[in-house]
Structures are given as C-alpha cells and as structure tokens.
Nucleic acid binder design. Structure first.
Lengths: 229, 229
DNA sequence: CGTGGCCTTGATAAAGTTCAAGAGCCGTGG
DNA sequence: CCACGGCTCTTGAACTTTATCAAGGCCACG
C-alpha cells in the first residue's frame, strides 16, 4: 500500500479531491515508533499533527508523582496532536506508542494552507475536534461523577459493543494501561474486577478475556446505580 | 449597540469581511435567559450554537445523584454549544444562565454554509475548539491527578492572573458554583479554604474577597507539591 | 427585624491510594 | 522442553482524602 492509498482511507480526508489528496501525500512525513517510544511530550512545540497508520498510540498526562491519566488511545487512521496546529503551539499532553506504530506527520503550514483552500477538509477537521470534545465530556463525567466500578462497567459495555455482539469481551490493552485510562491504579482496578466476579456480573477467562454475565447489572453501575448492600 | 456591532466584537468572527458579518447578522436570533434558566439540556438536539452577549452561562454535567460538574463558564463574546453543529446533533452537556444573560443563537445550516465560503471563519472556529480541548486536558488533569487543594490553588492563581496584578482576588462565582467547577462539594471547599487560611497561604476578606499571602506556597500546591508536615 | 439561602463546622463513613509481599505468566536461553 | 528472570497482576492491611449527614451561624434582602 503506498502513501496515497493510505491517505485515501483516512476518514479525516474523506471528500477531498484527488488533487488535494496528492497535495497531502506530497507534504506528509512518515515515521515509525517502537513500543514505549515517546512521540511528543507535553510542552513541546507542535509544528504539525499526526495520523496513526498502523499500531496504537496513547495520549496522556503525568502527575508530579508519576501517576498517569490516559486521555485517548488512537488506532489506525485516527488523527492526534492537532491542538497546537490551531491554538498556540505547545502540546497540552504527551504521546507514546503502545506498540510498534507507523504514523504520518503533516506539517502545520502546508496543512493550514490546504484547509483554506478546501472547505470540506475544514469541516472534517471541525467534526474530529467536536467528537473529541464530546469524548472529553464523557471522561470528565466519569472522573468526577462516577466511581471506579461505574467507569469500568461503562468501558466494558463500550468494548462489548465495539466488538459487536456476544457476551465476551477481549481487553485491547493491559490492565495497567486500563487503570490509567479509567483514572485509577492497577491495585484498585484489580480489586474492582475481583468484586464484579464475586457478584457474578462478569467472569474472567484468562488475563484478557472477560465474559459478561449480567449486562443489566453492569448498565446499572455505568449509570451510577447504587450497589447492593 | 446594534446586532452588527455586537457581532463585529466577537473574536470568533474576527477577520470576516463586512459582507459576511452582515450575513451573520441576518441569520442570528437573539434570546434572553433569566438567572437559573436552562438554555439547553444534555441530550437535546442542537440545531445551532450560541454566543454570550452579556451575562454569564455555565455548561455542566449532572450525575444520577444530582451532583454537578461544571465544564465551563462563559462570559461576553464567548461561543458555546458548538459540538452538535459539527458532530452528531445532541448536546453532550447542559447549559444554564448564571445571571440574566443575553445570547445570540446561530442556526446550524446557515452557519455551516458561511464556513464553507469563508476559510478564516473555519480557522477561527478550529482555534476555538482547540483551545477548548486544551482546557479540558487541564480539567481532566486536575480531577484525576490533583487533590482539591491543588485544584483550588491553581484556580486562585489563574483568577489572580486574570484580574491582573495585585495579591487580591475577587471570586467571580459563588462558592457553591466554585465547588462544582473544581469537582467537589461546598463542604469540602469550605474546609480547604479554612485550612489554607490556617496555614497562612491566603486570608479571607468578606465572602468573595481573598488575599494571597503566599503565592509560592499556592504554586507548590497547584503543581502537586507535598503539603507541609 | 425576621426569613431563607449560602456558607461553615463537626462527626462519621466510604472510596481510593499506598506500601508491601506474593502469585501467575511469558519469552529467553540453556 | 524445561527452568530462569522479569513483568504484570493480585491480595492484604493501614492510611488519606473526600463525601455524607446533621446542625448551626451569617448575611442579605425584603
């Protein structure tokens, strides 16, 4: 698959003319990052943004004591690191490859030029940022208004839906990373999973496989329902 | 001040031609909301977005048990409620007037049309959304990685900077609302303020006036520094 | 000058984190 | 093929932070 074909497949670039896609292919820079390798750090200057071609990338914040809050995990064809392109020039968070990952880098100036010439690209980017804002409201809601079991239940249901259908879920990240995504620590996550098993909401099958036994019970938790005494 | 003059003053519309500003003036709808009145609710369909003309508006989420997390407070010339314009059509949060407020409403379709014709409007809107994303990362960082004293300290320093200069800060919202903005409840906020006074970091002068006695101490807290033993 | 809303304070309970130790799993290399 | 070493994950006990419940105090405004 060549560069142009990869670009054609990215939803952000849907609706672009052949010519404009070729313009993008002309300015793009391809890079590869190994597992655990940093892509950018909070406070760095951003002179462009990224799109994941293959692999997975996490964007996160670190506390002064080293705790990590994951903001997003991006997979193939998803853009990240756009904020500095349009507002100020420093990254508000850090990014790191979760596994060996190939990414496109689009330099700021050429990309902004293209946006000015192509309204559909502008609207696509507005849609991307708007969806991101929506996701953030969900994250904030979870952190502020729900407890860990509620956030975990919501995540399991979300994963289950994404993996379409059956009552089986396969975690796509390690439990340590999941803890960071849910705004807690591995110990707490482990205890909550154990409790959910005890209460017959779920059943663990191996390290990364979980059976959903009581979807309604999980839904109650995700909605902030009160726990059984 | 007529409609066109109000529009000319909104940063989002900076750089627009006279003609396009007139187009906006032609599609805008003006509305007034009393203190405590709802502007929209989470889940409502959004067929346009808003700009505050005068007064103040809070955007927030409610938990199933009635706790409120404020996401933003918007003042004059600030746009809000844009997400449904570009992504899906439902509001991810609710909005309510904090005081008697006048707002402009811009219907979705006409506005999107104009964006397609004017790249500078597109870029302005991208900048608005990007700044909003940046603010969210700060909010998430606070909620997940800092304790209440740290968030409060950061807010006081932010307010102090915004109010330019001296060591005196005037709260622009009630303490109950501030608790909602910091992701806590009034009782906890009250206790934290009392503790900061005891430790001579601040001094309360009346209900809404606070003197900053130890800016470095506050900065330490805001950075997640460890508390004095 | 009284009344209601907002704020404060106290006692108690719940949720989550920390620290410490042990168990399970996996890839590597003998 | 098995054993080693290093992770990741789990579990326990103590502690910290925050929420909850319940009064009581303070203004502000009518």
């Amino acid at each position: 698959m060549n560069t142009l074909e990869h670009i054609a497949v990215i939803p952000l670039f849907e609706g672009l003319s052949q010519k404009h896609q070729e313009d993008l292919a002309a300015i793009v820079v391809q890079r590869v990052f190994g597992r655990g390798q940093s892509i950018f750090s909070e406070g760095d200057e951003g002179n462009g943004f990224y799109v994941v071609v293959s692999g997975r990338v996490k964007v996160f914040k670190l506390s002064s004591e080293g705790k990590e809050q994951i903001l997003h995990i991006f997979g193939a064809s998803e853009p990240f690191g756009e904020v500095p392109v349009f507002a100020g020039q420093r990254f508000p968070a850090s990014a790191e490859a979760l596994e060996e990952s190939r990414v496109f880098f689009f330099p700021r100036k050429a990309f902004v030029d293209l946006i000015q010439r192509d309204p559909s690209l502008a609207l696509n980017m507005l849609a991307v940022l708007s969806r991101r804002l929506r996701q953030f409201t969900t994250l904030v809601e979870g952190l502020s208004l729900k407890e860990v079991p509620g956030r975990l239940a919501a995540y399991l249901l979300y994963l289950n839906e994404k993996q379409g259908g059956t009552n089986q879920v396969t975690l796509d990240i390690s439990k340590g990373q999941l803890a960071g995504l849910l705004g807690t620590i591995p110990e707490t996550l482990s205890r909550v999973l154990a409790r959910m098993s005890r209460e017959r909401l779920i059943e663990s099958k191996g390290t990364r496989r979980i059976h959903i036994l009581d979807r309604d019970g999980l839904q109650d938790l995700a909605d902030g329902g009160k726990h059984l005494p």
